[in-house]
Design a binder for these strands. Structure first.
Length: 485
DNA sequence: TTTTGAGTTGTTCGA
DNA sequence: GTCGAACAACTCAAA
């Protein structure tokens, strides 16, 4: 039987559950098909960087398929219609794909399943995107967790108990019938999304190489140092795997497998803590996938609905200053300029910039959420929404609302010498460490000495943190008072 | 059913 | 400069 492998956000040949099953069941008679869905091209959350990463990874996937006797079929249009047409054209008896859990994906996949089955075509889907799927981790009451820590305990207990197993490997030989209609893979620019960012290398080979670099016990010790070094943005101490996990050029299962090897290979408690911290990031990913699957309304409003009443100011000029990295707070601006330049931002900076937009600029977290989605190669609705709601204090964990990041203190704590800030704000290059996170404190003479005129070469702070902090506290208190009323 | 302990990542203030 | 307490109340999860 010929089987269609419906390629979605699993752009790889290794460790791919739907692909492995499809090859096994079809004896290699496989039609790998990606449907470029016009709905996604029109979505407000789509950005050039992620589209570029997707398309170039598809190009690489096609090349990899060709070395094994196959090729990629690219279709454009509505997935149900395209898959149905392809199945009829090629005489395929089944469609296999890996499950996805966003509201849009669930709706789309449900429709594909029912319409194809009505047409006599079998549909099978597989766990692949998550380590544990949304329904898999339940509390004692058989309900779903909404707090991370107990979720993590259960998640990790099941892994440690050996309940989790990956099926790893790649098909050696694929036989795709020749002569089927396929379209050339376009570039992002050809689809109306000119690329302006320096995006990291897409594709499966790059993803696997990054994981090897990060997990390699003998050389980098990167996983082992992760727990402490990951907070220093000037260091290259994070895995940089987020876009690969977003588009599936690397398997989450391969990540967990590598991290468990590192974890089990040592008795050194710091090393184990580092590995566990990184594994925790995979659990966070599952956690927010699960939150979105069970509470799809979070894409429209606050997880804790009372916080929908927050009266944001949404000042357009302040939002623009934040987006373009011109707030006058160096650690915030460096983070935003990293995002704009590279379609990626260090996690510590994501927290700092998100806190600043919501609690210093008093802008709705959804404005930041949308901007991140457009700019990030790794932008994922579940993780991005979870992160923003956490920063805004509207989300799953009961973060005290008075936990407001101080951009100066955060800079001094996590970038004490200003190495990171200076990399993205060259105008601050001559400043001594003492001033690098508060350049507005330079006297006129010092501004001349260091070649930096505040207000001309670099902006004065657009808001006063101390004052805005009080305003944010009052804003959140007002919602709290309303809840009591 | 009731009770109890705890909750990713922080800041400020005053001793 | 360092340290500990205060900053609120609420909800979740499990005993």
């Amino acid at each position: 039987m010929i089987i269609i492998w419906w390629v979605r956000r699993d752009l790889r040949l290794h460790d791919n559950h739907a692909l492995l099953q499809a090859v096994e069941q079809s004896g290699g008679q496989l039609l790998p098909c990606f449907v470029l869905d016009e709905t996604l091209l029109r979505a407000v959350w789509t950005g050039a960087a992620r589209l570029h990463f997707l398309l170039e990874s598809l190009r690489e996937l096609d090349r990899a398929l060709r070395t094994r006797g196959g090729y990629l079929l690219l279709r454009r249009g509505e997935p149900t219609a395209e898959l149905l047409a392809l199945a009829r054209e090629a005489g395929a008896g089944a469609v296999y794909f890996n499950r996805d859990y966003s509201p849009y994906a669930l709706r789309r996949d449900g429709q594909v399943q029912s319409e194809l089955e009505q047409a006599g075509i079998a549909v099978r889907s597989f766990k692949d995107l998550a380590i544990w799927e949304p329904d898999a981790i339940r509390s004692g009451e058989d309900s779903f967790y909404t707090v991370y820590t107990p979720y993590w305990r259960r998640w990790w207990a099941r892994v440690e108990a050996g309940e989790w197993q990956a099926s790893l490997g790649a098909p050696k030989r694929i036989n795709t019938p020749p002569g089927l209609a396929t379209q050339p893979i376009p570039t992002a620019a050809e689809l109306g999304f000119p690329l302006t960012q320096q995006v990291q290398t897409p594709g499966e080979a790059a993803g696997r190489a990054l994981l090897r670099r990060f997990a390699d016990q003998t050389r980098a010790q990167a996983i082992g140092d992760y727990a402490t070094a990951r907070d220093i943005p000037a260091l290259d101490a994070t895995s940089r795997l987020s876009p690969h996990l977003r588009l599936g050029t690397l398997a989450p299962a391969a990540c967990l497998h590598a991290a468990l090897e590192a974890y089990r290979a040592t008795d050194d408690e710091q090393q184990r803590a580092g590995a566990r911290a990184w594994i925790g990031e995979l659990a966070w990913r599952d956690f927010y996938i699960q939150i979105l699957a069970h509470h799809p309304y979070v894409l429209r409003g606050a997880f804790r609905r009372a916080y929908d009443a927050l009266a944001w100011q949404n000042d357009a000029e302040l939002l623009d200053a934040w987006q373009t990295g011109r707030t006058g707070y160096p650690i915030v601006d460096a983070g935003m300029r990293q995002l704009n330049a590279e379609a990626w931002m260090h996690n510590r900076l994501r927290m700092i910039t998100a806190s600043f937009l919501t609690k210093d600029l008093l802008c709705d977290w959804r404005l930041g959420e949308r901007y991140f989605m457009r700019q990030l190669a790794c932008g994922d609705p579940a993780a991005n929404n979870g992160g923003w709601q956490w920063a805004a204090g509207t989300g799953t964990d009961a973060q005290p609302f008075f936990r407001i990041f101080n951009p100066t203190a955060q800079g001094q704590r996590f970038d004490p010498e200003g190495h990171f800030v200076k990399r993205y704000l060259p105008e601050l290059a001559n400043l001594p460490a003492k001033f690098v996170h508060e350049p507005w404190k330079l006297s006129a003479a010092e501004q001349r000495r260091y070649g930096l005129q505040i207000g001309a070469d670099y902006p004065a702070p657009v808001v006063d943190h101390k004052q805005r902090r009080e305003q944010a506290l009052a804003l959140y208190r007002s919602v709290h008072a309303e809840k009591q009323a």
